[in-house]
Design a protein around this nucleic acid. Structure first.
Length: 513
RNA sequence: GCCGGAGUAGCUCAGUUGGUCAGAGCAGCGGAAUCAUAAUCCGCGUGUCGGGGGUUCAAGUCCCUCCUCCGGCACCA
């Protein structure tokens, strides 16, 4: 049987600062989708990592009295630690300072140059002598002062190498128009198309080494280092194995000599703030290098607090670690996935968090607990050999809705469908009244059917909840006597009858305020 | 300014191509039950579907207009 594959990526996070909830959301979203695909039987490559070059790294390191790589080592460790805490199941953590990546970037740029898309010119911008850097028109504002210290900026020019991005404008527009689902959600697609309604300029891909030394030197001009966005985006190709920099120039894996690899990516995930780099710069760079485009780009929204943006200066930053300490990682993952409509912004409030936790605890957790308790009480802790199809139609509806949600990038809907199955099962208990059946002399068979159906439903729920709540789902599977959480295709064949169950403490305990 | 999106029960939101579309969850009120984490289940909502106008036999669902809110408008990772 041919196993289909799925390659998905998060952005690589800039290593100048500590991981925060924005990084965590992107990464958890990717993790949930990766786990979902694995459970669906696909061969998944899930990539994340850190972006480690550029001026800000250089400055942040200097400010702390560290070398740039020292700082990056430190921060990469912080990210990896955070992802361990959050139960992230990435297959590879890439760093742009890795030798492999550096070689791929250089090969990629060389290929662009061989294809005739690179030229030297002058970059003109607003430079602050005090900050030793350029600022954008937007950053300096109408008063034209640097936004950090308020000092003067001046219009100066420097040599840069440019990529002929403008040549690919029409082709990119056509691709977006012919593939309505290429950029999701739709509103972001509209924005990109609006952006492309203006003439596209060429992209500056290098910076003078005299000004920024912490970067990848251009293969043909060692006085220039690669612009950090170009460097960073190429990580997706590096990890795919599509390019072999060690091969001879015509054999490296670009358009005319493809190599077996994971490229193109099936899904690039990112926050809406970096949609332009991923939906404009990146695809045109790929076109220039002769590589196929990623299959889908999904931009998600922001978490806001109350009605204000989460911001350190306002002091309303939510620390996920604090919530994790009290409620556990799976509960935090559940809240983030269930509460935010995928792609839109959402607002964090402690009340909503508690509501979502209570849903997990009361509907799902309590269903597990009461079912296992009844099996223990009425059948000596062994799932009886009754019929397991008491909720068959409801279950197949729920699974269908769940899969529609996860594959259609509506994770909140998908998980709502899973939770609805738990609601349905609670209703089934009320209807069947196992406690009454247990007292009736002629109720044994019906009680067997009821408990077997419920146990089988729990196995299904373990499978549906695994992507979002992996630890609790695994725990549930173990309590049902299963070695592991069943895959979706294994559900029909999963038979928990005859299994000794473990009641154990509540899956999602009551948390005192 | 230009482009785009949104405004549906107290709250968060669903509502395909116009015709059981006026809904779900939470909160609130009432009830049932006792296997369970005082958890669960059932019942209860006359909401001008932002305002106004129009098309149509029929409009949250299409068109026009107004109001309010939000997002985007490139080298910032």
């Amino acid at each position: 049987m041919r196993v289909s594959s799925f390659y998905l990526t998060t952005p690589i996070y800039y290593a100048s600062g500590e991981p925060h909830i924005g990084h965590a959301y992107s990464t958890i979203l990717a993790d949930v989708l990766a786990r979902y695909r694995r459970r669906a039987g696909e061969d998944v490559l899930f990539l994340t990592g850190t972006d480690e070059h550029g001026q800000k790294i250089q400055e942040a390191a200097a400010a702390q009295g560290l070398g740039p790589l020292e700082l990056c080592d430190l921060m990469a460790g912080r990210f990896e630690e955070a992802w361990r805490t959050l139960g992230i199941s990435h297959d590879r953590f890439i760093r742009t300072t890795e030798a492999e990546h550096i070689a791929v970037v250089r090969a990629f740029l060389e290929r662009l140059r061989e294809n005739g898309f690179i030229y030297a010119s002058e970059y003109t911008g607003w430079y602050s002598v005090g900050q030793e850097r350029y600022f954008t028109e937007k950053e300096i504002g109408p008063d034209r002062v640097d936004p950090i210290a308020g000092g003067p900026v001046e219009r100066i020019r420097e040599k840069n190498w440019f990529f002929r991005m403008s040549l690919f404008q029409d082709r990119l527009i056509r691709h977006i128009e012919e593939n309505p689902e290429w950029i999701v959600p739709r509103t972001r697609r509209n924005e990109v198309l609006g952006f492309l309604g203006q003439p596209l300029e060429d992209l500056s891909i290098s910076r003078p080494r005299s000004r920024i030394h912490w970067g990848i030197p251009l293969p043909w001009d060692s006085d220039q280092v690669t612009y950090v966005w170009v460097d960073a985006l190429i990580n997706y190709v590096t990890a795919s194995g599509a390019v072999d920099p060690a091969a001879s120039p015509g054999e490296r894996g670009f358009g005319d000599s493809p190599r077996p690899s994971r490229w193109p990516a099936d899904l690039h995930l990112m926050g809406k703030d970096i949609i332009t780099t991923h939906a404009v710069y990146w695809p045109t760079l790929l076109m220039g290098a002769g590589l196929p485009l990623p299959r889908k780009i999904l931009a998600h929204g922001w978490w806001i607090v109350g009605d204000t943006k989460m911001s350190k200066s306002i002091g309303n930053v939510v620390d996920p670690l604090d919530l994790i300490d009290r409620f556990g990682t799976d509960a935090v993952r559940w809240y983030l996935m269930r509460e935010m409509p995928t792609g839109q912004d959402a607002s964090y409030t402690p009340e909503r968090f508690l509501t979502r936790y209570d849903e997990l605890r009361n509907i799902f957790g309590n269903l597990v607990h009461r079912t296992l308790s009844m099996i223990r009480r009425y059948r000596d802790g062994v799932v009886p050999h009754g019929r397991t199809d008491g909720l068959a139609p409801e279950t197949s509806d729920a699974v269908a809705g769940y899969r529609r949600g996860l594959e259609g990038h509506r994770l909140h809907d998908g998980f709502a469908a899973a939770m609805d199955l738990a609601r349905t099962a609670n209703g089934y208990i009320e209807t069947r009244e196992p406690w009454t059946l247990a007292r009736r002399s002629d109720g044994a068979e019906e009680l067997d059917d009821t408990l077997a159906t419920l146990a089988h439903t729990l196995a299904t729920l373990a499978s549906l909840f695994e992507p979002v709540a992996p630890r609790k789902a695994r725990e549930l599977a173990h309590r049902l006597g299963l070695y592991d959480v069943p895959g979706f295709d294994e559900l029909a064949a999963t038979d928990v009858r005859g299994m000794p169950v473990t009641v154990g403490p509540p899956l999602f305990p009551r948390v005192e305020p």
